[in-house]
């Protein structure tokens, strides 16, 4: 099944160096349509560096990125976004002083009347759409007209994720989406991710939480010291094997490791 048409994202020998530091070395990565994968690895393994290259935040030192079969060079996050790659950043990138619909539709507002920058907003339509989107995610936000800055971390995270999920994006990347969340909020975010799977939206998940990774994704990519050291089907492996790959040490000494 390694048909070219089946692959949404592919990198070829993707390399990033910061001066003498080899943050990412010849990463060859593929993602199929509708596939959910996780990227795991220790701190400094190159996970975030990898994501920064494919989302246009940084430009690779060498190597190529192919998105939907075409070679792409994103010079900014905006270009990647326009191509259909949505990322949920760790710092969320929300406007705290705006309400939920304004955040969801920022930069692509629904209009009542078109007149350049002075186009009139269709606030009713945006509110209705926002309600519908958040209903699907089953997140409870009592009043969508409240400023996002006045909401809890979980609610904010769900707004950020819903924004990515609510637009016809071709690929969603989430960097530690539940790192700062409570149990209930984590469950809600995980439900959103499952919903994306059902809709066939491909996803790259970066997470330190291996249990979450096993719960959510089809395939796990393991990074170590800037290199991809493994690509395993989630159903065919276990926490021990993954941890061995992350640390580079063999042996079943990881049962009591608290991150499994």
């Amino acid at each position: 099944m390694n048909n070219q048409d089946d692959i949404i994202l592919r990198t070829e020998n993707l390399t990033k160096r910061y001066g003498g530091v080899h943050a990412l070395e010849e990463a060859n990565f593929t993602l199929k349509k509708g596939e959910h994968v996780a990227i795991v690895g220790d701190n400094g393994a190159g996970k975030s560096t990898f994501v920064r290259q494919i989302t246009g935040v940084e430009q690779p030192t060498s190597g190529d990125i192919f998105f939907e079969g075409k070679r792409v060079e994103f010079s900014s996050p905006l270009e990647a976004r326009e191509a259909g790659i949505e990322s949920v950043f760790q710092d969320l990138a929300l406007c705290n002083d705006l309400d939920v619909p304004s955040n969801l539709f920022l930069g692509r507002e629904e209009l009542l009347f078109k007149f350049g920058p002075f186009s009139i907003l269709d606030e009713k339509k945006m509110m209705q759409k926002a309600k519908a989107v958040l209903e699907r995610t089953a997140i409870k936000i009592p009043n969508l007209s409240n400023h996002v800055g006045d909401m809890s971390g979980g609610q904010r995270q769900c707004v950020a994720i819903s924004r990515s999920a609510s637009f016809a994006s071709k690929l969603i990347i989430m960097d530690e989406p539940t790192a700062a969340l409570g149990v209930q909020e984590t469950t809600q975010v995980e439900n959103i991710i499952r919903g994306l799977k059902e809709q066939g939206v491909p996803l790259i998940l970066i997470s330190h939480n291996l249990r979450q990774v096993f719960n959510l994704v089809d395939k796990i990519w393991v990074f170590r010291r800037g290199r991809i050291v493994g690509e395993v089907i989630a159903a065919e492996t276990d926490g021990n094997e993954i941890v061995s790959m992350i640390t580079g040490m063999q042996g079943g000494v990881h049962e009591k490791a608290s991150y499994i």
């Binding site: 996050p77 905006l78 976004r81 326009e82 950043f89 969320l92 990138a93 929300l94 406007c95 705290n96 002083d97 705006l98 304004s102 920022l106 930069g107 692509r108 507002e109 209009l111 920058p117 002075f118 186009s119 009139i120 907003l121 606030e123």
Partner: peptide, 27 residues
């Protein structure tokens, strides 16, 4: 009225609230 009901107004608030988020959102 312009600040309240137009794209110009919304983007003005967005830039003041989080300039980076505004840029990432395509403004």
């Amino acid at each position: 009225l312009i600040l309240k009901h137009t794209v110009y107004g919304k983007h003005t608030y967005a830039i003041g609230s989080n300039e980076k988020a505004a840029r990432v959102a395509g403004i």
